[in-house]
Design a protein around this nucleic acid. Structure first.
Lengths: 269, 269
DNA sequence: GCTCGTCTCG
DNA sequence: CGAGACGAGC
């Protein structure tokens, strides 16, 4: 069973790329971020064989999960777990969607970017990450098998940046952000790529500006985290750089996790 | 010798179409309107074999003439003939360019649209047309061979509109605009298409809106006018509808005039 | 750089 | 409907 994550930076602009990629990479689950469309305009019919769970908004953000198996449950935002009173406005921006398939909880996140250290958006990012911690604690305390995919906008270590010196004041690399990422791992989540490789330059995002991709000035900020039940069942995890080189690409490229679990989709279909 | 006119509605967006069209229609002179780029950004190198005479501005308007023969003279706007004091601000918008090749004066115009009868822009259009009358009088009084190509934003008669009834209050069909067009003919210019055909539905422009092209709700507003020396040398004039049917087309399509004059370009090259 | 919304123009 | 400008966000 394969689960992938990809920040597509507009599903409308990237529809062709997504279809092309799925053709060659028929993953069972594809988590998308930055769809940037309202639910009414999401191209649900453009992915034959997949069911779409969507949570969109106009212009910014928006997440979706395509899955071959029809989910047994879908929920959007923190509220269903943490309660609407507790999370305040944190669900206004559509950044989290959750589905359950095959008794696995799949959570797709688009963590706020944070703009710059100390900005109002930075505080929002840290606040949102604290809510995510509470949210994920709920699942881990129940010992459920959880897979958290997404654009985390955090490079966990200096191995994950093209030029790590003097980046501690840079958004996505500041100590508070990295601490927040560490906190998730302390819930017994594993960063699945690092289960299989300790190499540097395993980037998932290259800024559109300044020829970053050509010069390989990238960051690893898209991650798939897995809870303990899935650790031993993780077979491989890798980054597919190819789509970043296509014409008019997203600035992110997909990460794929392969699990040693039979795909019941095939059995069911 | 062939001379064509085409309002391309952005040379940047239409570059491929223009190149494709020139491949099949290697006219000697191509007059373009609504290039919508400043001179620095005009893709001069994109037309091998052609010299570019350009007069552009940001966002709106902009005219250019591509010619196989290098012009012996180029001028922009009314001022070189009428004097800067006389024409006031009429040259701020880039709507007129003139070249001389083979002792023929080629004038390329993008007549203001006029928006709606009685509006300020309508007055500007009529004012601009009066200036054009003075401008052309200069050439005709000298008995020079003149070819005036362009988007005139005037349908000369009811033959030139898809549904002529009740269009006398419509921009491009109002009596004052038609009178202005008549005035040019009284300078002994001929509307070269009408030299060869009196048929209706010889349209050159179809609004992007309301499926106008599909329903053939068009207008003939792009014209090539020729002064008396050229009348007998005009061999044919026609409209090429094809580019209007291409993907992401301009809303206008080219008009081509064939003159029975040897193309010295071939002799010179 | 690239995509979005909103605006103006035709 | 389809151009371009402009400003936001990342």
């Amino acid at each position: 069973m394969q689960i992938a994550t990809w920040n597509v930076n507009s599903i409308r602009m990237r529809l062709g790329h997504i279809q092309q990629w799925l053709e060659k990479n028929p993953v069972d689950v594809l988590c998308l971020q930055e769809t940037k469309v309202m639910d009414e305009q999401f191209p649900q019919d453009a992915f034959p064989g997949y069911t779409c769970a969507i949570a969109g908004q106009k212009s910014y953000n928006g997440v979706a999960i395509l899955s071959k198996i029809k989910p047994t449950a879908i929920s959007v935002g923190f509220a269903p777990i943490l309660g609407a009173e507790v999370i305040g406005d944190l669900d206004v921006q559509k950044r989290l969607i959750h589905i359950q398939i095959q008794s696995i909880e799949i959570i797709n996140v688009y963590v706020p970017n944070g703009q710059s250290i100390g900005s109002e958006k930075y505080e929002y990012k840290l606040c949102w990450l604290r809510a995510l911690y509470q949210y994920l604690s709920h699942f881990t305390s129940l010992k459920l098998p959880v897979c958290v995919c997404g654009d985390w906008n955090i490079a966990p270590t200096d191995l994950d940046i093209y030029n790590p010196e003097n980046k501690q004041d840079h958004i996505m690399a500041s100590p508070p952000e990295r601490q927040a990422f560490e906190d998730f791992l302390s819930l017994n989540f594993q960063d699945s790529l690092r289960r299989f490789s300790q190499e540097s330059e395993q980037f998932t995002w290259w800024d559109y500006r300044a020829g970053s991709f050509r010069r390989n000035h990238g960051w690893r900020i898209d991650h798939i985290l897995i809870s303990s039940w899935l650790h031993s069942r993780a077979k491989n995890c890798w980054i597919d750089r190819e789509p970043r080189g296509w014409e008019q690409p997203s600035d992110h490229t997909p990460v794929i996790l392969e699990l040693d679990i039979e795909n019941i989709a095939i059995l069911l279909n």
